[in-house]
Design a protein around this nucleic acid. Structure first.
Length: 510
DNA sequence: TCTGGGGTCCTAGGACCC
DNA sequence: TCTGGGGTCCTAGGACCC
């Protein structure tokens, strides 16, 4: 807990949806929903326009479509989000080297570690009202500059919270949304914290909140009043103590810049449950290879292999095996994953499969992939996609060939090769995806079906563009590269996304 | 409406060792 | 013959976060 509000939390507003609105002029001011578009997809991000219809993150896509049928439903474009995220993090590092990213769109910054740290430090002085007011004014100016810099660099809006701890900085940025700034003055922490539902505390999710509610604890003030002993009794040692501290406003967690990766995993939910054992094992092979490729791209090896199975009824189990020494050999991981799978009953069908590696160590060997790859199709070749660059996310596997046609796991022919043309077209032209036409230039897929694909031709820096329809196999149309958000004439002066105009202020006297 | 994918941390029981 | 306590590792599951 600091005497001075020098921890900053920044959160991009409706990040994925705002990137799409910036990239696609025709979507600005419209409801945009980004997520898995298949029958089992969920919402990753909804624009504020879509949220007005009740759509939110993690909602089943089916429900989102019913609540907001006229929204634009788009597949996520992670390479673009990653690129924008790097720009955002670079702007944050211009203020202080101590930046802790929490995800692509969120980070903590420790301002005391930066060039302004000395100025902000009260240097052991009494935190007089005057000194505190001076520091508060400086931090507010700094944070407002930061938001403006991010607007200029990305064309997007961000919300910022500043406080004397991580917890309060994060709560403040939440309250500032969208496109706002909120600073919690030292001494006013309880004013902000006490009335909030316990759910607002980090680490208190639906299950814990329900547990506390049954014990008559609904707000942070009530949790604080309950005391540590009672909370430990209710929630267990670690969580009880954590909730007691947080509720009392105590949070001394430092901002940590370089957190080590502890596990790597890959999983896939299938559009239709897998019933066939052979198919299940083939998918395990694919996931294991993909997992090891990412492991090696990160320069790591691991000791424990984990497989994850979600059955038709959503019951989920994991099976793991630990080696004596870490490996990054795909053949080893593959063999263990298969063996673990042998002990799992999949009667009734499998909804999701996953393969992961934990117990990571820092080493890689070269060329272990060579022999595994030989019999595979182009899609699975390593060294194609750059480290960590995903293919289409959340695509899973489409219902494959009918069971009668299944070959054994070693079969050289991939199921993709025998996929019906219509299904192949469906996966080739996904809404939101970048395309290029030899005559009309760059655009994006608006939709496809019955042998046609509809494309809107526009770029981040053009006015809203026109829509044209093509045959799905039109040779003039191909996948395109994602375009940068900032056009040839430099960044857009008007940030997109967010909602109402900027707001900022400090929590001070009532 | 029907529930993604990538992670982190904690708990608890049993094995094993001292 | 009956019975220790503590530490560490492994496995499985669950809550939580974005």
């Amino acid at each position: 807990m600091r005497a001075v509000p020098t921890i900053l939390h920044l959160d991009m507003d409706a990040f994925y949806a705002s990137v799409e609105q910036a990239a696609k002029p025709s979507l600005r001011g419209k409801a945009v929903i980004v997520g898995g578009l298949g029958p089992r997809g969920v919402v990753a991000t909804a624009s504020y326009e879509a949220r007005r219809s009740g759509v939110h993150s993690a909602m089943a896509m089916g429900m989102a479509r019913r609540l907001c049928p006229n929204a634009a439903f788009l597949v996520p474009r992670f390479p673009v989000y990653r690129q924008v995220s790097e720009v955002v993090m670079a702007v944050l590092r211009s203020v202080s080297p101590l930046v802790e990213p929490l995800s692509l769109d969120e980070a903590f910054v420790d301002l005391e570690a930066g060039p302004h740290g000395a100025l902000l430090d009260l240097q052991g002085q009494e935190p007089t009202a005057l000194a505190t007011a001076r520091v508060t004014a400086m931090v507010l100016a700094l944070a407002e500059d930061l938001r403006a810099d991010i607007g200029r660099a990305t064309g997007l809006t961000a919300s910022v919270g500043v406080a004397s701890s991580k917890m309060l900085a994060k709560i403040a940025s939440e309250q500032a949304k969208p496109d706002g700034l909120l600073l919690v003055e030292p001494g006013r922490e309880h004013q902000v914290l006490d009335p909030l539902p316990v759910r607002a505390l980090p680490g208190v999710g639906p299950a814990t909140a329900e547990h506390l509610r049954r014990a008559g604890i609904a707000t942070v003030a009530e949790a604080a009043a309950a005391g540590k002993a009672e909370l430990v009794r209710l929630l267990g040692k670690a969580q009880g103590a954590a909730v007691a501290s947080m509720a009392a406003g105590r949070d001394d967690r430092p901002v940590v810049a370089d957190r080590e990766t502890k596990s790597v995993s890959v999983e896939d939910t299938f559009e239709v449950d897998l019933a066939d054992r052979t198919r299940v094992l083939r998918e395990i092979d694919r996931l294991a290879e993909s997992c090891v490729r990412r492991l090696r791209a990160a320069g790591k090896s691991g000791r424990t292999v984990v497989v994850k199975v979600r059955r038709f009824d959503f019951s989920t189990l994991t099976r793991s095996e630990t080696l004596r020494a870490p490996t990054d050999d795909p053949a080893v991981v593959l063999e263990i994953a298969r063996r673990l799978m042998d002990a799992v009953d999949t009667t009734g069908g499998v909804r999701l499969l996953g393969v992961g590696v934990t117990g990571l160590a820092d080493f890689t060997q070269e060329d272990l992939f060579a022999h595994v790859v030989e019999a595979k199709g182009d899609a699975e070749r390593p060294g194609g996609p750059v480290a960590g660059a995903p293919g289409p996310e959340g695509q899973g596997a489409v219902a494959g060939a009918p069971p009668g046609e299944e070959r054994d796991a070693a079969g050289a022919e991939s199921s993709l090769a025998r996929e019906p043309a219509a299904a192949e077209a469906q996966r080739r032209w996904l809404p939101g995806q970048d395309v290029r036409h030899v005559e009309f230039g760059p655009g994006w897929v608006q939709g496809s079906g019955v042998g046609r694909v509809t494309v809107r031709f526009e770029t981040p820096w053009s006015p809203p563009g026109r829509v044209r329809t093509f045959l799905v196999d039109d040779p003039a149309l191909e996948q395109g590269p994602p375009l940068p958000l900032t056009g040839p004439d430099g960044p857009d002066p008007e940030p997109h996304g967010g909602g109402p105009g900027p707001r900022s202020g400090a929590v001070s006297g009532t």
